[in-house]
């Protein structure tokens, strides 16, 4: 890539640099946004599995509550995804 810079035909355009930085920012943004919900969903489902193992009769209620918890934590990851889309495509 450095040889590209040394080439006299390549001009550095400020707009393209901004676009590149925007793409990098979008990628880092979504990557950081996905860490928390990933761990969170792992905790929710892990505890749900423990609960279902301790008391199999309550499995239905635990499963429903687990889905509710997953939807809450996944919403945060998806907000990050929406920000990524907004930065990358507008």
């Amino acid at each position: 890539m450095l040889s590209l810079l040394a080439d006299s035909n390549v001009t550095i355009n400020a707009q393209e640099i901004l676009k590149g930085l925007g793409a990098v920012g979008a990628g880092i943004g979504y990557g950081a946004a996905a860490v928390g919900p990933g761990i969170g969903i792992g905790i929710v489902v892990g505890n749900a599995i423990t609960a279902m193992a301790r008391q199999p009769e309550a499995a239905g209620m635990v499963r429903t509550t687990m889905f509710l918890g997953i939807a809450f934590t996944e919403a945060l990851a998806l907000i990050g995804f929406v920000v990524f889309i907004l930065l990358k495509f507008t």
Partner: peptide, 16 residues
């Protein structure tokens, strides 16, 4: 806000 974004982003992400 989260109610709207949860539904919208899930569907958009799936489509993409």
């Amino acid at each position: 806000f989260s109610l709207a974004v949860r539904l919208f982003a899930n569907e958009l992400a799936g489509h993409l």
